[in-house]
Design a protein around this nucleic acid. Sequence first.
DNA 1: CTTGTACCTCTAGCGACTAGAGAAATTAGT
DNA 2: ACTAATTTCTCTAGTCGCTAGAGGTACAAG
Lengths: 137, 137
Amino acid sequence: MISIGELSRRTNVKVPTIRYYESIGLMPDPGRTEGGQRRYGQDELERLAFIRHARDLGFSIDAIRELIALAGKPGEPCERADVIASRQLAAVRARIARLRKLEAELARIAAACDGHTTGQCQVIAALGDHGLCAGSH
Amino acid sequence: MISIGELSRRTNVKVPTIRYYESIGLMPDPGRTEGGQRRYGQDELERLAFIRHARDLGFSIDAIRELIALAGKPGEPCERADVIASRQLAAVRARIARLRKLEAELARIAAACDGHTTGQCQVIAALGDHGLCAGSH
DNA sequence: CTTGTACCTCTAGCGACTAGAGAAATTAGT
DNA sequence: ACTAATTTCTCTAGTCGCTAGAGGTACAAG
């Protein structure tokens, strides 16, 4: 049985965040000491590690809730879990594609200020004039 | 002089968002009709287009505020604007790098469910066991 | 002059936390 | 056994950038 601080250290999830997860029902009510402090066991540690990992991968709290529910019952859950993971993968790929466009345009804008030779600021001009954009966004 | 709805259509910024920008001081108080409705001119249209464009590029409201302030005074603003844009570019590149790692791991996880042959769900197992991850995150 | 749309203000809510106050419990050291 | 330091407790409110809804008013077209 470990304290919330210890759990926090082992999972890299901040203490207030653990309590927050409990408040929204993502983590179960843990046992308490006589004095009322939370004490966690192996189950909770694993569950929180799972949550942390999924959050790192960009899964929403709701998606995680669903994944946990699926993990709870051993039946034919794989299909649904696969759908969730695949959807997440598609979302990540879309975000990457979008960010790459931004990168190209930002690089162009930042480069405009290159030698500090121009009196007029090209950065601000580029932001103001959408028509200058190379890509369409 | 155009209405808020017309401004919204031309800039692709939703009406409540325009009012929100006004409430936080990002857009100025516009003129009003006798009946109290907002009316905008060319200046406001350009300013909002600037804001929209910068938001699209991921600049924070605070960064935009600073850029607008810089644009207001023609002196030697280019340096500072360049710093802001470059910082934004670096942030975008960092996000891309991070997302690429996630993409790799998600692809691996989703592929585990490939032929639906396994009884045990590999997706959930992969999320639970951080040690299975290829990359370190 | 009516009808229908667009507009007004205001409050509250979203996701996913984060920060702070003030009090009580636990732990480590003597 | 006592003290002091650290940790933990609950609770409220704040963050960011909007978005949604209620209930009411102004404006443009026919």
